[in-house]
Design a protein around this nucleic acid. Structure first.
Lengths: 148, 148
DNA sequence: GTGTTTGCAAAGTGTTTGCAATTTA
DNA sequence: TAAATTGCAAACACTTTGCAAACAC
């Protein structure tokens, strides 16, 4: 599969990204960051579980333990590089899209898609008690094949 | 508390509710249904975890196993008596309010409150592919103490 | 009676953690 | 070299399941 001179998934792009986020740039973090953020052929927005990312890394010949993948995903999330998404029970999902957006969840396939928050408008939200603020509004549109 | 002719916390109300839902009325189900739907002094809308409901039942002198509580909560959910709510990882929550509504989640306390869907309007949702339908739109407003 | 439900304990997920060895800055 | 990170395996939290005994109808 390593066929042409086309650049291997970003040489030190990952490293600088890590630095910018205040994280030490280790072999494992660089590799995972490259998979998450820089791989060509990937859509901009990825939704991965720890398990899936670990498999992907191992398949790509990257030696990293599942525990480290978990830890790394959380560190990336805290650093603001990822956002954790909860649609239902089961493995939690990490989203490379950290901008303001919502989700479309396909109940039949489990597929998760981003919905730009630009088009969607939510009105009538309640006034919060003083001293409180909205940290985020999560919206999940659940869709399925029409049954009736 | 059984003072007036006013009915004690629903004698067979729970039983008939179960029948209506097509569930056999067993001792455990009746007791759990009574706790969930009929207890005086409770708010109309309850958000319980399996663990919490089990504890509550045991404290009330009801003999029931945690496994049965889990099973019963799912049966109630399938029967449309409850709705499962996911706000984040951790134990899943069951909501006695099955009407159309959203949730306010207090990140500091973990408290979950219902938001009537009547006031809230969501516009700009995407058109779905033919043959697909929206099964539900989940909205969670996450609030916290103002930090900045 | 017959099919359903229960409870237990065991197995199953998905995730976190303690700690020695390794790596980074 | 000091501090952070890794990997393993064990622990963990939450949930489901297999199966025999108990129960509802």
């Amino acid at each position: 599969m390593k066929q042409s001179p086309s650049p291997a998934p970003s040489p030190d792009l990952a490293a600088s990204r890590l630095r910018a986020a205040g994280l030490r740039s280790t072999r494992q973090r660089k590799a995972l960051a490259a998979l998450l953020f820089d791989s060509a052929g990937h859509k901009k927005c990825r939704h991965v579980t720890a398990e899936a990312l670990h498999t992907e890394a191992v398949d790509a010949g990257i030696q990293v333990s599942l525990a480290t993948v978990y830890n790394t995903l959380h560190q990336f999330t805290i650093a603001g590089l990822l956002r954790e998404v909860v649609v239902d029970a089961g493995p939690s999902c990490f989203d490379t899209n950290t901008s303001d957006h919502y989700h479309l969840y396909n109940e039949n396939t489990g597929e998760l898609t981003d919905l730009s928050a630009r088009r969607i408008r939510i009105t009538g939200l309640p006034r919060l008690p003083a001293g409180a603020e909205v940290s985020r509004v999560d919206v999940v549109v659940r869709m399925r094949r029409r049954s009736t």
